[in-house]
């Protein structure tokens, strides 16, 4: 079942582990006969390869959390998967965790698919010791005697430079950085194939953040896991991800190797995003982007970026641009860019 990953860090031609195909996830509500639909994820397709850190960047209300929820199978009303499929290499044939039988989901959860969440307090039960979290999450998957398991946990905690004494501590007794490292250890102890990291370092101090990012990187290289790394912080993406997808208003607008996105951003939104990053030592004024992110209950027709786009033409208001390959491995959904690239 579990493929042996030979090359933990050679993502160029590695096989995909996750395929997301034309995924559409909408929030549908109906109050007193008034129907309202929010197209939070609208036709998103991408694949994450084995052993790579795939970044997903997007601002708030761009649908990145909905996308993760759909991938993780955490579908609860009013969220509905309207179309498309999510397929993991370790759970083939169902087209999404939400369609798979609970027995299979329980089997792969934490063993093959784990999560690092933003608020470590939400993962660790505040009234139980850290140790019990490890027992609850990982023991059923690892098995063996309790003593062996404990040794394994202690050895794993050393990787994130945590003392075994944290096991006996309650979450509130640990600092934010320690808690997040404990969560990281918890998410990686079963050596999962796929880790969903949702803003894992956003709540941390900058100094601690860099340290935790380094740990995620080194553990990921060691275990060969794939990571779907979601954050709005472009600095974090530049630091850790291999490939990067930019999401805007429920759709992907650009995807390429992270270095390529920073060196040669093509979509007008990405270009704005990259050029507006303040940097120490650079005093050039940064231009803000006019308008605001669209309301997904009533998104603009055509390309959703067109009301704010400096390059918008007539076609952008009518038709939805497809994600086309502008360069090898560099996909972008923009009429202006794709026209230029193809001409």
């Amino acid at each position: 079942m579990r493929a042996n990953v030979q090359q933990p860090h050679a993502p160029q031609d590695a096989q995909p582990i996750l395929w997301v195909r034309d995924l559409q996830a909408h929030y549908r509500t109906s109050h007193f006969g008034v129907r309202r639909g929010v197209k939070a994820v609208d036709g998103v397709s991408f694949a994450v390869r084995r052993g790579e850190i795939y970044g997903l960047a997007g601002e708030s209300s761009s649908g990145k959390t909905t996308l993760i929820k759909s991938i993780a199978g955490a579908i609860r009303p009013p969220l509905e998967i309207v179309g498309g499929s999510v397929e993991f290499a370790f759970l083939p044939g169902y087209g999404g965790l939400h369609r798979a039988p609970p027995v299979d989901v329980a089997r792969i959860r934490w063993r093959h698919l784990s999560y690092i969440m933003q608020g470590s307090m939400n993962v660790l039960n505040p009234v139980r010791r850290v140790e019990s979290a490890f027992v609850d999450f990982a023991y059923p998957h690892i098995g063996g005697s309790r003593k062996q398991f404990e040794q394994q946990v202690v050895a794993h905690l050393a990787r994130v430079r945590l003392d075994p004494s944290v096991l006996a501590a309650f979450p509130h007794e640990l600092s934010g950085g320690m808690r997040q490292r404990a969560t990281l250890a918890l998410a990686t102890i079963c050596r999962p194939d796929f880790i969903i990291a949702d803003e894992p370092t956003t709540a941390l101090d900058v100094v601690v953040q860099k340290e935790v990012l380094g740990m995620i990187r080194s553990i990921q290289r060691e275990t060969g896991s794939s990571v779907l790394f979601v954050t709005h912080d472009m600095g974090v993406h530049a630091h850790i991800t291999d490939r990067l997808a930019i999401m805007y208003a429920g759709r992907l607008v650009e995807e390429a190797a992270t270095a390529e996105i920073f060196r040669n951003p093509l979509h007008p939104y990405t270009r704005h995003l990259i050029s507006s990053l303040p940097r120490i030592g650079d005093d050039t004024p940064r231009e803000g982007l006019g308008g605001s992110p669209p309301n997904l209950a009533d998104p603009p027709p055509g390309c959703r970026f067109h009301p704010r786009c400096p390059l918008a033409t007539e076609i952008c208001k009518r038709e939805v641009p497809a994600m086309l390959e502008a360069d090898t491995g560099h996909r972008v959904a923009c009429f202006a860019v794709n026209q230029g690239a193809r001409a």
């Binding site: 601002e59 209300s61 709005h232 939104y269 507006s276 940064r286 803000g288 704010r308």
Partner: peptide, 11 residues
């Protein structure tokens, strides 16, 4: 604040 608006707020 959203990335695309952050710099506007800072400005």
């Amino acid at each position: 604040i959203d990335a695309s608006l952050r710099i506007s707020i800072v400005n």
